[in-house]
C-alpha cells in the first residue's frame, strides 16, 4: 500500500463554513466525489495540503427544476441529476450528459461542481510519477515544454473533458460563485478560459490547458442555473473508447428550435477537443431553412474550423475533429426530425 501525501480534510456542513475554510486556506483544493482528484493525488500529480469536502453542505445538494428554470447545487451527484424526472423532461441535454459521464460508480460519487471544474487531461499528464519523470515532466506540472506541441512557447494544450459544461452552455447557463464576501453570478462560458493561443499573451481571461478556469483564489462554484426556452429540443452524445466508462474522445451537445420546415435556432457545444468546452460560433448562418446536405456540410466546416483537437489522447486530433462533425450532424438531423 502506497500512502497518500499528508493533507488535512475539512468537511464543512454549511456554505458559510465552506467559504471561511476556503478563505483561511488559499492553497486548499475543493473535493466533491474525488473520482478525478483522488486519482491525481494518488499519482503524485497534485498534492494539496488541505482538501475541503463540499458533499456534506446541505445548501449545495438541491435541484430546483420546473418548466421555466433549472437550478442545480454544486454538490448534487451526477446520478441524482441524470435521474431527476423534471430535468429529463424539460432539460434532456443536461440529464443525458450526466448519464454519459464515466461509469455507474463514478456517477454515484461525482458531483456537478466537480464535473464543471474537472481538471484538464493529457496523455503526458495523467500518468504515474515515474512515467512523467522519465520524460522530464510537462508544462502542466513542473516541466518546461509541452510534449504535445514542443514549440508551443509555454502554452499547455491539455484537454477539457467535462460532459456537463457543453450541455449547459447550449442552454446559456449561469453559475453562482461564492467568495468570502458574497456570491457573484457569471455566465458558465466565462468560467472557461483555456483558449491556448500561441499568438497572444496569456492573461487573467485568456489562459490555456494549465490555467483553464477563471476562478480567483478562494472562490467556490456553488450552483449552475438555466432558463428554459419554449420549443427547444436538445440532446447529448459522446464517443469514447470504452463505452460504459471513459472520458470523451469527443462529446457534443445540440439544442435547436424548429418552426414549420425551418431551423430557427441552433446551438452546438463540444467537449474533449480543446482546453475549454467550445460553444460553436456562427451557427445563426445555418438557420432559416431545412438542415439539408448543404447546411450540414457548412456545419461540419464550422466544427473543423473551431475544434482544435491535439494529440492529447490515444486518438489522433484529426480523428476527433471528424468525429465531432459526425456527432453534431447526427444530433441536428435527429432533433430536427423528432
Amino acid at each position: 500500500m502506497q500512502a497518500l501525501p499528508e493533507f488535512e480534510l475539512l468537511r464543512p456542513t454549511t456554505l458559510d463554513d465552506a467559504r471561511k475554510a476556503r478563505a483561511a486556506h488559499p492553497e486548499s483544493q475543493i473535493i466533491g466525489g474525488g473520482t478525478d482528484l483522488m486519482v491525481n493525488i494518488r499519482r503524485g500529480i497534485v498534492a494539496p495540503p488541505v482538501l475541503i469536502d463540499l458533499t456534506g453542505v446541505a445548501e449545495l445538494r438541491k435541484i430546483n427544476a420546473d418548466e421555466t428554470s433549472l437550478e442545480i447545487g454544486a454538490s448534487v451527484t451526477l446520478v441524482e441529476l441524470a435521474a431527476h424526472p423534471q430535468v429529463i423532461k424539460h432539460y434532456p441535454v443536461v440529464a443525458e450528459a450526466a448519464a454519459h459521464i464515466a461509469g455507474p460508480m463514478h456517477r454515484n460519487m461525482g458531483t456537478v461542481g466537480g464535473n464543471l471544474c474537472l481538471d484538464t487531461r493529457c496523455i503526458f499528464y495523467n500518468q504515474s510519477e515515474w512515467w512523467r519523470g522519465a520524460i522530464h515532466h510537462c508544462l502542466k506540472t513542473t516541466g518546461d515544454i509541452c510534449h504535445v506541441a514542443p514549440k508551443s512557447r509555454g502554452v499547455c494544450f491539455a484537454t477539457f473533458s467535462g460532459d456537463l459544461a457543453p450541455a449547459l452552455m447550449t442552454l446559456d447557463a449561469e453559475i453562482g460563485v461564492a467568495r468570502a464576501d458574497g456570491i457573484r453570478a457569471m455566465p458558465l462560458n466565462a468560467l472557461y478560459i483555456g483558449y491556448a493561443r500561441q499568438d497572444e499573451p496569456q492573461t487573467a481571461t485568456r489562459g490555456d490547458g494549465k490555467h483553464f478556469l477563471s476562478l480567483r483564489p478562494g472562490e467556490i462554484v456553488t450552483s449552475v442555473s438555466v432558463k428554459n426556452t419554449p420549443g427547444l429540443r436538445s440532446a447529448y452524445d459522446k464517443i469514447r473508447i470504452r463505452r460504459s466508462i471513459e472520458f470523451p474522445v469527443c462529446g457534443v451537445a445540440v439544442a435547436l428550435r424548429r418552426d414549420g420546415d425551418a431551423l430557427i435556432d441552433l446551438r452546438v457545444a463540444f467537449t474533449g477537443t480543446n482546453s475549454r468546452p467550445v460553444r460553436l460560433e456562427g451557427t445563426a448562418a445555418l438557420c432559416g431553412g431545412t438542415p439539408d446536405a448543404r447546411v450540414l456540410q457548412d456545419l461540419d466546416a464550422l466544427v473543423r474550423d473551431q475544434v482544435m483537437a491535439m494529440k492529447t489522447t490515444f486518438t489522433p486530433g484529426h480523428y476527433r475533429r471528424r468525429v465531432a462533425g459526425v456527432l453534431a450532424r447526427r444530433l441536428v438531423t435527429r432533433l430536427f426530425e423528432s
Binding site: 466525489g33 474525488g34 483522488m38 486519482v39 482538501l51 455507474p104 454515484n108 460519487m109
Partner: peptide, 12 residues
C-alpha cells in the same frame, strides 16, 4: 449505492 473505495477517503 455502489462506490469505489479506492477513491474515497475513510473519513468521508
Amino acid at each position: 449505492e455502489p462506490r469505489l473505495s479506492c477513491l474515497m477517503l475513510a473519513a468521508s
